[in-house]
Amino acid sequence: MTPRASRFPHLLAVICRRLIWFMVVLLVGGLVGAVLVRVAPGFGTDERMLDARLSNASIQAIARERSGGADIGWYYVDYLGRLLRGDLGTSVSLGRPVRELLGERMGTSVRSAGLGLALAWTLALAVIGLLELCRNPAGETLASVIVEVLLCIPVALLAVGCFYLGGAPALAVAAILFPRIFRYGRALARQTGAAPHVLAAHASGESPWRILGFHVMLPIFPELAALAGVTVNMAVGAIIPVEALCDSPGVGALVWQAALARDLPVLVNVTLLVTAVTLASNFAADVARNARWDAI
């Protein structure tokens, strides 16, 4: 048996272990989300119950309607059964199937997050490359100051600022992600740029572009790929305040509305969805970091 063939069962075992872990975390994540919502002191209350014009019977009917998920264990088991049949339940606040709501809004969120990620990465890599080529202390200081300033501003405030400047939600996502990508990427590039083989390449008169491409960026590619996985998580986290404040009709805005309306079916489904995206990107980040399947 060749070494490659002997590695295959090990690789299969690793993938199976990862998938089992993925499913366990997904199930527990959904349960934690549902329990958190259920045990919150305001569960089962509805703003309509404070309406003095409603009769006692109407208020009791609303209370009955809102206590549908009171038994969390039963609710979750029933939910999982329906999930397997593709039924995600019906939103309490919007009165529409959650699947429909997610389907309508997913495109907007994916577009915003995807464009934001692409913009942030392009800008970060361009600035890192430029700084590495120029090696100008003033440029380095300026970039560091801009990044530190962006990191000290709450993400929601960055979203509001981008909205005022007429920027799309993608711009806000990019403004949130750029400093985090740049800081990590720049540290890696600086560390690699000072390595002996890079100094030797400089001394032997190789072109700066070639050194940047082959001796600096290529060796840090696995770390950058891992960072790409992590930035997907960051984009998912950022999309909630961005869409809520920029009035963009995506999943983030849906989550915000659901949170305000105490909409358990929407919250549990989105928790599962976001956890799945997070786990998948973490998995991709792990794979990229290790760069070799047998090392996972």
């Binding site: 958190l36 703003e47 986290g237 919250l267 928790t271």
Partner: peptide, 24 residues
């Protein structure tokens, strides 16, 4: 710890905060 890191903190916080009673 991995499980907690896999859960979106801001989202959980948003949900739990929103579910506090109206008269809190």
């Amino acid at each position: 710890a991995d499980l907690f890191l896999s859960l979106p903190l801001f989202f959980l916080l948003l949900a739990a905060r929103a579910l506090l009673p109206l008269h809190t």
